[in-house]
Design a protein around this nucleic acid. Sequence first.
DNA 1: ACAATTATCTTGTATATACAAGATGGCTTG
DNA 2: CAAGCCATCTTGTATATACAAGATAATTGT
Lengths: 235, 235
Amino acid sequence: MTTPKFAQIKQFIVDNIRSGAWLENQRVPSENELADQFSVSRMTARRALSELTEAGILTRSQGLGTFVASFKSQSSLLEIKNIADEVKARNGNYSCTVLVLESINALAPIAIALGVEADSVVYRSVLVHNENDQPLQVEERFVNPALADSYLQQDFTHLTPHEYLSSVAPLTEARHTVEAIMPNAEMCQWLNLYHEEPCLQVIRRTWSSTGIVSFARLVSPGSKYRLGGHLTFKK
Amino acid sequence: MTTPKFAQIKQFIVDNIRSGAWLENQRVPSENELADQFSVSRMTARRALSELTEAGILTRSQGLGTFVASFKSQSSLLEIKNIADEVKARNGNYSCTVLVLESINALAPIAIALGVEADSVVYRSVLVHNENDQPLQVEERFVNPALADSYLQQDFTHLTPHEYLSSVAPLTEARHTVEAIMPNAEMCQWLNLYHEEPCLQVIRRTWSSTGIVSFARLVSPGSKYRLGGHLTFKK
DNA sequence: ACAATTATCTTGTATATACAAGATGGCTTG
DNA sequence: CAAGCCATCTTGTATATACAAGATAATTGT
């Protein structure tokens, strides 16, 4: 008996749901019933139910019982991975080109996004992430100097901005939006696009405990890049 | 003392991380230390650490200790919500128009995506989801008749296809991809677009225990629709 | 000096027990 | 008959205890 008892009970429950034997919103055995059935203590049976509830596969309510969660309530999740890791994962040759690394006076929209005063100095970088020496994504990033004052001295061909910023300011929050845009002429040049092509744009804002750290715009050609997501009953 | 003890300990730990007092990869107090510090049993302290580990805020390793998880390892997640719910959530007027509801002979790519033989009969629906009577998203869906034989008899102006399919075949898995595309003429007409505009396209395939249930293509204008994601240390 | 053992710390699994609190049905009482 | 009470089910919180197993540092023996 190498697999723990609580894991066996989890497996038993998941199998019943996967096979369709237990349908949505149907009641599952109570803690005491499972404890008897598997000859374990109530706390062990409880652990199986609790962890599956935390995973969103079951729902519980005190006094009533435990039920199979409705699939509808499962929100579908998409991962936004580090692009360097993604390229390496598919055995591509990853490289990075630094196009711009400067300090500028923030225009109003940038200043607002970074939570600093308009026209104050912020850092700006534009990098191109390449796979097999072909542009895959352009990263334009605005950084709050108060939280990362040596940003301009970094060598981003070896350390990504995100990695550097994480080490300088402990990140506490991030927000993303994904949209489809048409690249402007400058972006076309950066991405080496000869004809106009729709692009995926991810806007990422990262917070630290003391304020907004940076504001990044990640643009990739729709023909070369896509986001993947996966949702499954398992474990 | 209304809030449970384990929740208080979780709060204490999260506060220390948010404030930057405990940095990435730094060791946090052990179960026994927390138990002494808060005058609780080891099992209660353990619960706080376990739940924060499950949430991805801490990492643990047997024999070594518990550590603040590195932000880098946190995968950023995007939610794909039900569009009807989203519209209603912002107090919009949601409506749905059924453009196509038919059975067709599947071309090769559709047949492969659905896991059926080429040229076999499958169901196809094209719906337009409207916000305040303006097209927001086109949903083109191909359905495996073996798993939902009364699909064509449904009234999708009141029940979404996803809701109907969930009730008929217990869903066990879903996969998504998001990309930026340029709509063709037919799609432009459906979306009421006068000039060409980049669109966000979500492809969703859903599995049941007995096979692939359906294959959906969700297309929204880039100017009207975006996906939002959010990642935070909390609870 | 070096290798093997031991002690001691950590997390991981499991049990038995106790009481609190929500939900439900049946019973008692007015 | 109906309102209130109570027994009994459920999950939720909390403790004390025991042993297993991984990791590390100290100790011991050669």
